[in-house]
């Protein structure tokens, strides 16, 4: 006879356990972990290229780059000066999960690393469900997208701590209204820290570097 059998289990419990293990490991090494998410083409790789180029001498940076089919992004980042770069080719999967990240960081010497960047697959839907053991998610949007992007992908904006608005050098070339974009993002998540940058010209990136440096110092300081 059919009966009701309680299960009461988290569907992504296995992923969450692996993510918790990654988090413990990174916490022990006092490594800041940032999970970078965006639509395809917003400029995650450009932002990381710039960041590696600017901070590689003052901070010990590691990076895991997820891509659906190629290692192109990882190659770009290695050229930008990152020795500790690992590629994850998801083979079609639309998001990174914790087991992929665990495997990739097992190949990186994390001793002394200040910040681990995890470049997720360009997608604003699927990656929001998968905890990768990061300290926070950084969502990147660009001025060539609609300024209503936060309203279209609210789950991702709600779960992110930082918003980087990229391609500000193109402001005025499209109907993108930066104030409206910020207002939309803040209506979903009032706690977002926002940076406005151009990875092409370098404008606004100093504030981002300063913030990263302070974040790393705070982590090393033990908090």
């Amino acid at each position: 006879m059919t009966s009701k059998v309680p299960i009461e289990k988290k569907v992504l419990g296995k992923n969450d356990e692996i993510a918790a293990e990654i988090r413990r490991r990174l916490q022990k090494g006092k490594v800041v972990a940032l999970n970078l998410v965006s639509s395809p083409g917003s400029g995650k790789t450009s932002l990381l290229e710039r960041t590696l180029g600017a901070l590689n001498h003052t901070l010990n940076l590691a990076l895991v780059a997820g891509d659906v089919q190629t290692e192109n992004d990882a190659q770009r980042l290695i050229r930008a000066g990152g020795a500790k770069v690992r590629a994850i080719v998801t083979g079609g999967a639309c998001h990174l999960d914790a087991s992929m990240v665990a495997k990739a960081i097992a190949e990186i010497d994390l001793a002394g690393v200040d910040i681990l960047f995890i470049e997720n697959v360009g997608n604003l839907v699927c990656p929001s469900s998968f905890d990768l053991g990061e300290d926070m998610k950084v969502v990147v949007m660009s001025t060539t997208e609609g300024d209503d992007k936060p309203l279209k992908y609210p789950a991702m904006y709600r779960r992110s701590s930082v918003l980087v608005i990229n391609k500000t050098d193109l402001l005025g070339q499209s109907d993108f209204d930066v104030e409206r974009a910020k207002k939309n993002a803040l209506s979903i998540n009032g706690a977002l820290t926002i940076f406005e940058v151009s990875c092409r010209t370098g404008a606004g990136l100093e504030a981002w570097y300063t913030w990263l440096t302070a974040l790393a110092a705070r982590k090393k300081g033990g908090s």
């Binding site: 059919t2 309680p6 299960i7 988290k10 709600r158």
Partner: peptide
Amino acid sequence: EVIQGEELDIDHILGE
């Protein structure tokens, strides 16, 4: 503070 809406749980099954 979100108090509901993050759920992704298997509640129960009907089976024998």
